[in-house]
């Protein structure tokens, strides 16, 4: 059961993040002031992919919730980091982000750290 929850969590997180990044790049710069929050909420309601991303996020969230109930937080959190590499590669392929040597090296270091944290 634990690993089913991990897989549901990772796949849902990846899809959700890609959809969100795609839509927010198109939306332009946002702020978190009083009017910014309202604007963000209206934007979620108006944009199909953002709404869809919230659905995937809900799946990911409930899987995480079930996971932290039975497994320790120090396992659940690093397990969620397996989405890291998948998302970074897809950000390059699908979202056309430029990932130079420095960002790739930094991301790998972070990944090693998160995996080590869970041991």
């Amino acid at each position: 059961m634990t690993w089913v929850l991990v897989i549901v969590m990772v796949v849902a997180t990846v899809v959700s993040d890609l959809l969100q990044s795609f839509e927010m790049k198109r939306a332009g710069e946002q702020s978190m002031g009083a009017s910014g929050v309202g604007r963000l909420l209206r934007m979620i309601a108006a944009r199909r992919y953002l709404l869809l991303s919230i659905v995937f996020l809900a799946f990911s969230f409930f899987a995480f919730m079930a996971l932290v109930q039975s497994a320790p937080l120090s396992f659940a959190v690093p397990a969620s980091a397996s989405s890291f590499i998948l998302e970074t590669v897809l950000a390059k392929v699908l979202l056309k982000e430029k990932i130079g040597a420095r960002r790739a090296a930094g991301t790998l270091l972070v990944l090693c750290g998160v995996v080590l944290l869970g041991k």
Binding site: Q20, S21, E29, Q30, L40, E97, R103, T107
Partner: peptide, 16 residues
């Protein structure tokens, strides 16, 4: 807050 962040920066920047 993360949505606002994604409007300012790359997904591959925000993740790490």
């Amino acid at each position: 807050v993360r949505l606002a962040l994604l409007s300012l920066a790359d997904l591959s920047f925000i993740l790490p």
